[in-house]
Each structure stands twice: as structure tokens, then as C-alpha cells.
Nucleic acid binder design. Structure first.
Lengths: 198, 198
DNA sequence: CTAATTCTTGACTGGTTCGTCCATAACGCT
DNA sequence: AGCGTTATGGACGAACCAGTCAAGAATTAG
């Protein structure tokens, strides 16, 4: 009954994500996003409300997609749990090293820039971190069931440690650490996880 | 022979650091800093050149002070090396948890916002990280000499792991992790470091 | 005291940016 | 086809902000 949109909302969100990710929130102009998407500013504001709301949408979606991706990587039977965990840690090192532009992770970047003054961003970041922790905890418990990690260790504590290492890899990557260093960290972290006594 | 400055340069740098730290680079206005210091904008520009240069001075100084502080914390004889290392890791967890405003570390925040597009910031962050890594490596080597850490482990690799955990604690703190979680991470990280075989 | 030099103050400029507004376009229902 | 409704696009307004400038103030050498 009314004029339909000419643009795909998801595509606009993707483009906006790229801009916010590269430039940060404050340094990205709405007009950049308008030009990059070919939209007029009126459409942009009409569809998303404003810069802050648009960022919230982007950030929300990004956090969700990160958790989803990890969730998919860590899904499977107990027998392969350790292999999946190992692959996940190495993948983080590789992905961080491959990010030669050092833009890092939008979750970390957005939280660093805005969490202090934006409760919405802070909440969303916290939720994502908690979800990641829970996923890792489940994975470590699976490793324990399969005898790949010492059964007497607290899976929650080990998960928190692994999560810290993963976030640390990301942070060091942004500061310019070499691929070798990052891979070393991944290997060492896996190596120090307590194995069951024979 | 000329009119002397009425302000203390160091005090202005301290105030500027607070502002940049709270608000980030882009969101901090030069006029904020001028008002907070009581200076006129002309004096500010006359003394420091411009916003970017002022931030570089602040960032440089901050990185130096972080490395200095860690260096002081880790200085001492081999017998106390493990105790110092342990105290350092716990101190990071406690300090991060105490930072209820979640402003985190200016090194991480500045690098996240600017390293991608500002080579000076990127270089300085990299140098600071490398210095921290070297300090930790020396400390771990001392622990090994004293028999507190397995002698066959690579001190560089363990140092990189510890550094990743420390940066990870900082990142998780910014995302809202509880003090308990952060302390758990510190304890677990220390617990998994390889001890010498008896 | 005068001159030379550097510092201070705050008004001003030029450019930038968020967000709004409006005339117009596109669509479906009747 | 006509109408109501929603999307479009770009011009516009108002605020903001980095950096400049000029007039005056403080200090010391001579």
C-alpha cells in the first residue's frame, strides 16, 4: 500500500559495520555510510533513527554473529572436543595475524570506545563475553568427559583462562605482535592445560 | 628575557591524559582540555602544537610509565621472582576489577582507536608490548633459575602466554567481567605454569 | 626605563557533521 | 485512475570544533 524500500537493510548494516569497524564510532560520518550505500541521508535516518541507534544495531548483530560462529565451531561430539578447542584457539591466532590492518575485533573496539559511556553497548558486550565463556566451559567439560583434560580441574576456571588468552591474542595482535608470537601463545596455552594423570 | 609560562607542562599533560582516557581521542575536544587546565587555547596550541601531537605526548608518556611500573614491580633477586610474578598477575586482576568505570588501559584504548590509522601510535604501542614481553621473559627466567618454573620450558613462550593472559584480563574487565572471574583467571594462569619435576 | 621576546586570552574563521525537512516518486488498494 | 501511505534524495539549519590571530601582559637584558 506504500512505496517499498529500494535498499536491502542487511546490506546497509553490513556496510555500516565495515565503516564503524575501520574508523571507530566517533570518526565515522553518517554521510560516509550514506555514500557507501548509495542511500540518501533521509532514508538512512528514516530506517535506522540515528547514528547511535545504527551503531547499536550493527554492534548487536556483530556480537551475535561472533557468538554464533564460535558456537558452530565448538559443536560436536565429545571425542572431537579437544581437537575443536585446539583448532579454535589456533584459528584465533591465525585470524588475528591475518588481520594486517590491525582493526581487531569490533566487539573489543566498540567496547573500548563506548562501553564506559553507553550502557547499551556495555550490556551487549558483557552478554557476548558471558556467552563465549559458557561455550568454552561446555567444550572443556566435553574434553574432560573424553579424558583429554584433567577431570579434577574446574571447567569454568579453565574456560575463563582460555577466554582471557583468546582476548589477549586479539589485543596483542592489535598492538602489532607477529604471527609467530601469536601462534606460540596458542600452542603454549593449549600445552599448559592440565592433562589427566595416566 | 621573555615572559615565563604560568602553567606546569606536566600538569597539563596529566589533565589531558585523564580526558583522552575517559573520552577517547576523537570524542575529546581541545576546549575541554583548555577549560580543565584553565589555559587558553592559544597557550595549549603554542605549547603542544595540536591535538594529535598532544595525544602523542600523552600516549608516549603513558606507555613509558606502564613499562616503568612493571619494571619496578619485577625488579629483585631470583629467590623472590615467583612471588613477584604472582603478585603482578594478581595485581592486574585486582586493578582491573577496581576500575569500575571500565575505562581500561589507555595503551589498549588508544591502540584500539588509533593504531590502525596512526603509525606513531602503532609504533609506540608495539614498543611498549615488546618491552613488557621482555620484562616478563626475564622474570620467568629468574623463576627457572630458582627452580620455581620448569627449566625445560621456553621462557619467551611462557612470557608471551602470561602477557596474553594479562592483556586478556584487561579486555575482559572492560567488557564487565566480575572481580571473581578476573581473580580466578589470575590464579588459574599461575597454576598452569609448568613446575619443575621433583 | 626601554626594547626585545615570549606567553596569554578569547574572539574569530572555515570547515565539518548530525539531524531535519520537503518536494517528489513509487507502490497497492479501491 | 485516484488516493493514501511510505520511501527518496538532497538542500538546509544549527551546532560544533580544530586551529589562527591580534592585542596586550609579563619578564629580563642592557
Amino acid at each position: 500500500m506504500a512505496r517499498p524500500r529500494k535498499f536491502d537493510e542487511q546490506q546497509v548494516l553490513d556496510t555500516a559495520r565495515e565503516r564503524f569497524w575501520s574508523g571507530g564510532y566517533a570518526a565515522t560520518r553518517m554521510e560516509d555510510i550514506a555514500e557507501a550505500t548509495g542511500l540518501g541521508k533521509g532514508s538512512l535516518y528514516g530506517a535506522f533513527g540515528g547514528k547511535r541507534e545504527l551503531f547499536h544495531r550493527v554492534f548487536d548483530e556483530y556480537c551475535g554473529s561472533v557468538v554464533d560462529a564460535v558456537s558452530r565451531q565448538l559443536r560436536g561430539n565429545d571425542a572431537d572436543a579437544y581437537a575443536r578447542l585446539s583448532a579454535h584457539v589456533y584459528a584465533m591466532a591465525a585470524a588475528t595475524a591475518a588481520d594486517t590492518a590491525h582493526r581487531g575485533c569490533l566487539l573489543a573496539k566498540g567496547a573500548a570506545e563506548l562501553a564506559e559511556h553507553d550502557e547499551t553497548v556495555a550490556k551487549r558486550a558483557r552478554a557476548a563475553i558471558e556467552a563465549l565463556q559458557a561455550l568454552l566451559e561446555g567444550e572443556i567439560a566435553a574434553c574432560q568427559r573424553n579424558g583429554d583434560i584433567a577431570a579434577d580441574a574446574d571447567p569454568g576456571e579453565l574456560a575463563a583462562l582460555v577466554l582471557a588468552v583468546l582476548r589477549g591474542i586479539e589485543a596483542l595482535g592489535k598492538a602489532g605482535a607477529s604471527e609467530e608470537t601469536l601462534t606460540d601463545i596458542a600452542r603454549t596455552a593449549l600445552a599448559v592445560l592440565p592433562r589427566p594423570a595416566h
